[in-house]
Design a protein around this nucleic acid. Structure first.
Length: 607
RNA sequence: GGUGGCGUAGCCAAGUGGUUAGGCAACGGAUUGCAAAUCCGUCACACGAGGGUUCGAAUCCCUCCGCCACCUCCA
């Protein structure tokens, strides 16, 4: 198997991945998560899904991954309104606009985020991981760790406190500031602004602790005022002597949270830090500065890095940044309103986006809704190092691709059936075994090549085409099914439930016996009284086919209903009554069951 | 203004000096009562423009054009 390589933003080069763990087993990964002041949009999720794919690829390489993704629920300032030079906390602003308590607001949007994350099958929100708060730390719950970190920075003289009780990181103390973003420290000065009420020694210095009496989320570093009791107890334990007396009640700066939470849950040095490209500067630049200032950590440059092996002042060894997703070739912007949230696409009508629903419906999306697996596919199908232009066309293509995979998967599942004995049907031919080995190898090679999804997908579709060309025996189908499932460990776009089946022609022939047909008809509530075949036929001929209300909804569509429809339709076909036969097929399709005639029999597929 | 990136057939998108990934769409054919699915074929000797280096360039060099991002909140 090939070696995993990643593009490291720190060096701008593609480097061989090697964990810091001396045993080479454990990998620590920190991903900048959402700021929960509104619904996360698909640009956010492109970045989160990039992290999701990365952790899956790491796992595929045999690593044991500990993946932390934070929730930012305090301290993220707007600072974008020139008239309001103080800036306002994003959450506070949203809370004020909605008339909500900021904590309630944060929890509301966090819940929505988790729901979206699950629907898009993010692994860190599935299984046991979902219930592990340490893997999804909230910033507001880590003020003790942040204050402890600030105190350390003050003690190490990387931070100072002004006369209004605010703390800043002193850039000039850290000469490597700017190394990640490639910015020259001197050039930054011109662009930096000094807000009203700030007493910075240097305009480039950034907030660690901010004082603003108007702010609703406040912590007093010297008393239990404003604290959650449990957090305060932890604070006392963590920092028994408290922090510098000059610090006044306030709230943490944005950058400090990630340094503190990564330290708390992963350690002072981590393997991988991910985020969107906009995080490079200033957020991650500041995190590096803080971590170094507090712990003086050095990380050795990985194999393939220009500074290979030599110590760096960085707390993460690999910095992996996803490029932006664009809409209409422009950056998505919450301000301009040119963005889609995940829920906008999954259910536009519920999100009151009627126009979008109509557009999606025209594009062939049922009820105007984009299936979550299609959205996931669309968002991961490009390489993260490239900008991606999002649009309905992309979704259409993603849907077609997912359906092609799903169809192949369903057919293989039918062929394998419930048989779990791998030796039940002999051995697969060499040609199929070779196909499977080669395809899986090509898939892995592409993923390990800096998550080259387009090439990985080329391997997937190449394999699908080759499999479609072959007549597979049972053992071969089992191998092929395993291959598809292997692909899906990373892609995670397949519906793995049994959603299709084949009813042989012979079976249907026996159903056409009058008694059996009537028995089957009893599964329909309106037809339960049918006394005999004659009367049943009269109804069929009168066009009284199974109506929508007669059939169970898709979720509970049971085999008996499908079998009845197949039987009646086949009777109609035999009688060359194709209008009736087609009407039944259309009705089933409308109800979510697609019927296909194959040489072997009648294939039905849910969905 | 500074910095970084991109421009590959109708669309999405790999490919970093020589044997042309893949997907989607469209069209033709096979199959089918009609569909669906699948297969075969076509569009496809494409690489923003112009120069240069080379036996040979999408790939290297130069110039130009267009687009995007970061430098300020943003994934």
């Amino acid at each position: 198997m090939s070696v995993l390589k990643l593009k490291n933003s720190y060096t701008k080069s593609v480097e061989v991945f090697q964990p810091l763990d001396p045993q080479g087993q454990k990998v620590t990964m920190y991903s900048c998560g959402p700021t929960v002041y509104s619904f996360a949009h698909i640009g956010n999720f492109r970045s989160f899904l990039m992290a999701d794919v990365l952790r899956r690829v790491l796992e595929r390489n045999g690593y044991e991954v500990r993946h932390v993704m934070n929730i930012t629920d305090v301290g993220h300032l707007t600072e974008d309104d020139v008239a309001d030079a103080q800036g306002e906390d994003k959450l506070q602003k949203a809370a004020r606009e909605m008339g909500w308590d900021p904590y309630k607001l944060a929890r509301h949007y966090e819940d929505a985020f988790v729901e979206d994350a699950r629907r898009l099958r993010m692994k860190n929100y599935s299984g046991g991981e979902a219930g592990e708060p340490d893997l999804h730390p909230r910033a507001a719950g880590h003020v003790p760790e942040m204050l402890a970190l600030i105190q350390k920075l003050v003690e190490n003289e990387y931070a100072y406190i002004d006369d209004s009780g605010q703390a800043y990181f002193e850039i000039s103390k850290f000469p490597d500031y700017g190394k990640l973003s490639g910015k020259l420290i001197d050039d930054l000065e011109a662009g930096a602004r000094v807000a009203v009420g700030e007493h910075k020694r240097d305009p480039r210095d950034f907030y660690l602790w901010k004082v603003d009496p108007k702010h609703l989320m406040q912590w007093d570093p010297h008393s239990e005022k404003g604290w959650d009791p449990a957090d305060y107890a932890r604070y006392r334990q963590l920092q028994p002597d408290g922090v510098d007396k000059r610090l006044k009640p306030g709230f943490p700066g944005w950058h400090i949270e990630c340094s503190a939470m990564a330290r708390a849950h992963l350690g002072a040095l981590i393997d991988i830090h991910t985020g969107g490209e906009d995080n490079i500067f200033p957020h991650h630049e500041c995190e590096i500065a803080q971590s170094f200032g507090a712990y003086h950590t050095h990380v050795p440059g990985p194999h393939g890095a220009p500074d290979e092996g030599s110590a760096r002042n960085a707390f993460a060894r690999y910095w992996v940044h996803g490029r932006f997703l664009l809409v209409n070739n422009k950056k998505m912007s919450k301000r301009d309103g040119t963005f889609y949230t995940v829920r906008d696409l999954l259910d536009p009508r519920a999100a009151e986006r009627e126009e979008l629903a109509a557009e999606l419906e025209t594009a062939g999306f049922k009820a105007g809704r984009v299936p979550a697996n299609v959205l996931r596919y669309a968002l991961i199908s490009n390489q993260y190092t490239q900008q991606m232009n999002f649009g309905v066309d992309l979704l259409k293509q993603a849907r077609a691709s997912v359906e092609r995979l799903q169809t192949r998967y369903d057919k293989l599942r039918e062929m394998v059936g419930d048989d779990t004995d791998p030796n039940a049907d002999g051995v697969a031919s060499d040609s199929v075994l070779e196909l499977v080995t080669k395809a899986e190898g090509a898939f892995d090679d592409a993923l390990n090549d800096n998550l080259n999804l387009p090439n990985a997908l080329a391997a997937v579709f190449g394999a699908v085409t080759e499999l479609n060309q072959k007549e597979l025996g049972p053992a071969e189908a089992r191998e092929a099914l395993r291959l598809m499932e292997s692909f899906d460990e990373v892609l995670d776009v397949l519906d793995r439930s049994a959603r299709s089946g084949l009813i042989t022609r012979e079976t249907v022939t026996t159903w056409l016996d009058a008694e059996q047909l009537v028995t089957k008809a009893s599964h329909l509530k309106h037809w339960a009284e049918m006394p005999d075949r004659e009367q049943l036929w009269e109804m069929i001929e009168a066009g009284q086919l199974p109506m929508a209300e007669d059939l169970a909804p898709v979720e509970t569509m049971d085999a008996a209903v499908i079998e009845l429809a197949v039987a009646i339709r086949q009777a109609a076909r035999k009688a060359k009554d194709f209008a009736t036969a087609d009407a039944i097929r259309d009705e089933l399709k409308h109800r979510g069951v697609q019927l296909e005639d194959t040489p072997q029999g009648f294939r039905w597929v849910l969905g």
